[in-house]
Computed example of a mutant assay.
Amino acid sequence: MQVHLHASHPTNLTTVIRPYSMQESPYVMNYITPVTITTKQTQVACDHNHEHPAVIFSSGGYTGNLFHEFNENIIPLFITTRLFKFRVHFIVVDHKPSFLKKYRRVFSRLSDHEIINPVTDSSVHCFPGAITGLKFHKFLGINTSENPQTYYTMPDFRNFIRQTYKLKTRTVLDTQNPPVLLLISRQRTRKFLNQPELVKMMEELGFRVIIASLDKEMSNIEKFSHVINSCSVMMGAHGAGLANEMFLPDGAVMIQVRPLGFQYGVDAFYSEPGPGMGLKYLEYRIAPGESSLADVYGLDHPIVADTASVAAKGGYAAARDIYLNKQDLRLNLNRFRATLVEALGIIGSFRDVANA
């Protein structure tokens, strides 16, 4: 794809941009289609003259993963295009129909125009201006200092998401009593091996429990967002499914269960963004005996007893392979009970303060 710029004075500059927000990841950037921008004085006949500017971005990369989709596409698109108030055209390289269909409600609220796929549309489109690429601020968040006059914040984005998906529950005051707890049930790795006993304890404490599978319930974001929006608490092991906290009402509690050994991104991905979204964050760190790795290697093996040594020897890839891809969890119900009681207390305090 080529973008020709009309310069105010004769120039002959060419640059290449891969329009994906995760610029610091060389691995993924290798798979993003480059866009060539040139100021060469070329005679170009316009097949279509547009009144509004264009935003060029890639729907490739890590799309297919909810966490990455929000971080690298949806939030950056909101930051970039809301200033245009729908009057903008989207040009999508690495056009991925499944991704565009999944977020069709988001795209329709950010632009009044049909999305342009440069692979199937070989005509020449002329625009008054264009933005090539999106900007990543931080995980599940917006850096207000980098916005025009601190114009957009994470609460603004959350309001946009509520309006887009017609989510009616704004705060936990509007949720049901007894409180509803959403349990993210992973099916491949980081499974809760004693999930039936875990659910029973939750119900005994007074929760109504909804169990959601990444593969089934979460596949339809338009439908699942309403389920999450009705909950006071969301809980799950570290993973992409926790990004669904985006749809929780204000004052809700998100509980992250931290697996043994793997610490990369655990704080930046989920614990730090929570307060910026008006949520309360709780964390449960499993003990070595709660990991399936203890069953395989024994409590005295370095993989269990000295987790830092794995990353020191094999780096990120080795730590990810063992602690994310080969580990399941058997929570100590007595220990975890205290976290659930704390969550109940937070919800109760929020309601007490609001009703005071």
Rank of each mutant, 00 (worst) to 15 (best):
V106T: 15
F107N: 15
F107W: 14
F107C: 09
R109V: 13
L110M: 15
S111Y: 13
H113I: 02
H113F: 05
H113M: 11
E114S: 15
I115S: 11
I116H: 08
N117Y: 08
P118I: 14
V119K: 15
D121N: 14
S123R: 14
S123T: 08
H125V: 14
C126M: 06
G129E: 12
A130R: 03
A130Y: 00
T132Y: 08
T132V: 15
G133P: 13
K135P: 02
F136D: 10
K138Y: 07
K138Q: 13
G141R: 12
N143F: 10
T144H: 10
T144I: 05
E146M: 15
Q149P: 01
Q149T: 10
Q149G: 08
T150F: 13
Y151G: 11
Y151L: 10
Y151H: 11
M154F: 12
P155M: 02
P155R: 04
D156G: 11
F157M: 07
R158M: 14
N159C: 08
N159S: 14
I161K: 06
I161R: 06
R162A: 08
Q163E: 15
T164D: 06
Y165N: 04
Y165G: 05
K166Y: 10
K168W: 03
T169N: 11
T169E: 07
R170V: 13
T171A: 09
T171C: 04
V172T: 14
V172G: 08
L173R: 12
Q176L: 12
Q176P: 09
N177A: 12
V180T: 15
L181T: 13
L181C: 09
L181M: 15
L181D: 01
L181K: 11
L183Y: 07
S185F: 01
R186W: 01
R186Y: 01
R186V: 01
Q187Y: 05
Q187L: 07
Q187W: 00
R188K: 15
T189Y: 12
T189R: 13
R190L: 10
R190T: 06
F192S: 03
F192M: 07
F192E: 00
L193A: 03
L193C: 05
Q195K: 06
P196S: 01
V199R: 01
V199N: 04
M201H: 11
E203F: 05
E203R: 14
E203L: 01
E204G: 00
L205V: 08
L205C: 12
G206N: 13
F207C: 10
R208I: 07
R208T: 10
V209Y: 00
V209W: 00
I210Q: 05
I211E: 05
I211D: 02
A212C: 04
A212L: 03
A212R: 00
S213I: 10
S213D: 07
L214N: 09
E217I: 02
E217D: 08
M218S: 04
M218E: 05
S219I: 07
S219Y: 09
N220W: 04
N220I: 05
I221H: 02
I221Q: 04
I221K: 09
E222F: 09
E222T: 04
K223S: 08
V227C: 00
I228H: 00
I228E: 00
I228N: 03
S230E: 12
S230G: 09
C231T: 09
M234P: 02
G236A: 06
A237Y: 00
A237H: 01
A240G: 06
A240I: 06
G241L: 12
G241I: 06
